[in-house]
Amino acid sequence: MERETPKKENTEFKDLPDVKIDPEKATSKHNSSKKTGIIIGLLVVLVVLFGAGYFMLQSRQQPAKPVEKEVQEEKEEKENKDTTPPEFVGMQDRIVVELNALDVDLTKYFLATDDGKQAEISITGDVNLAAEGEYPIVVTATDEAGNKTEHNVTVQVISENTMSTGIEFSCYVDGSIPLEAGTKQRLMANVIYFYYQDQNPEIQQKINELQIDVSQYPTQTTWHPSMQQTTPTV
């Protein structure tokens, strides 16, 4: 007959305290954690929304100042914009030049001013100094603002024979006259005489008033009344 082996009693967990779980408390803690998470989430969303709204508000307000400034500058620029064209001084409708005259610069026959300054002169049109005749040109005065004044002028090229009929040569604004090289030599030797215009007093006054530099106008072939007085033939 077999003996029954007595079962050993497990005493390993005897000394551990009993743990009881309260279902109500566990549910309460879970709900509290959930509420805390929702509140934190809402706070984060509010912070993000507030930051985004503040950034958009700043970005809208900041460009407003430059735009207002730009509009004001455009308004002032429009009010102060120079729209007055330059004016010619002592303008001539006809310029008389000797046939084959050397170093002729047609712009030197004209003077225009704007706001106390000398305006730039440009010429449009072709003049053949090697052929006697009349040539139409357009003289344009342009100021620093780009305003322009135009004037139609006729350039008359004459020979020595025509010159003897009493037609006056036109002078640059400084009073000097471009000539053919041989003509100047004979003139200086009192071999020939010719008719010429004197410097326009209005132009001379304006040159002195604005202190315009015309020292570079004369050339080796340019004659000026101050060199030698001549008596035109009758």
Rank of each mutant, 00 (worst) to 15 (best):
P136V: 00
S33Q: 12
E180W: 02
Q197H: 02
V155F: 00
Q220V: 05
G133T: 00
I38E: 12
K117V: 05
V67A: 14
E209G: 03
Y195L: 00
V234T: 08
V191Q: 14
S170C: 06
V44Q: 09
Q61T: 12
K20D: 12
V139W: 08
Q220W: 04
K29E: 14
T162D: 13
V104S: 05
A130L: 08
K8T: 10
S164K: 14
V96A: 04
V234W: 02
E76N: 13
L129H: 06
P85G: 06
D126Y: 03
E134W: 00
D213Y: 06
I158Y: 02
T11F: 12
E134N: 13
G133F: 11
I177K: 00
P17K: 07
L57P: 00
N147P: 05
I177F: 01
L210Q: 01
K20I: 10
T142P: 09
V173F: 10
I207N: 06
N10L: 08
A189T: 06
N10F: 08
Q216D: 15
T222H: 14
D198L: 10
D143T: 06
C171A: 12
L111I: 02
E132K: 11
L16F: 15
L43H: 02
E87I: 05
Q228D: 04
A101S: 14
V191L: 11
P136A: 03
I38D: 07
P17I: 03
V138F: 02
G90N: 05
N128Q: 06
S59H: 08
F55Q: 11
T142Q: 13
M227Q: 15
Q62E: 14
I137H: 04
Y172E: 01
K25E: 14
V45Y: 10
L129D: 04
Q185G: 00
I212S: 05
T83W: 07
E73K: 15
E144S: 14
L102R: 13
T107K: 12
P218E: 03
A64G: 00
L210I: 05
E12S: 13
Y195T: 02
P136S: 07
F13W: 06
P225Y: 06
T113L: 06
T154W: 03
T107W: 03
E98W: 01
A181I: 06
I123T: 02
K35N: 09
E68N: 09
M56G: 10
F110W: 07
F169L: 15
R3P: 03
T142F: 04
T221R: 00
E120P: 02
E209H: 01
D82E: 14
E87Q: 11
E144L: 15
K206L: 02
S176A: 03
T233K: 11
A119N: 09
D82P: 04
V153K: 01
E87S: 15
I121F: 05
E132V: 14
E180D: 13
Q92M: 10
A141D: 10
G90C: 08
P6A: 10
Q118K: 15
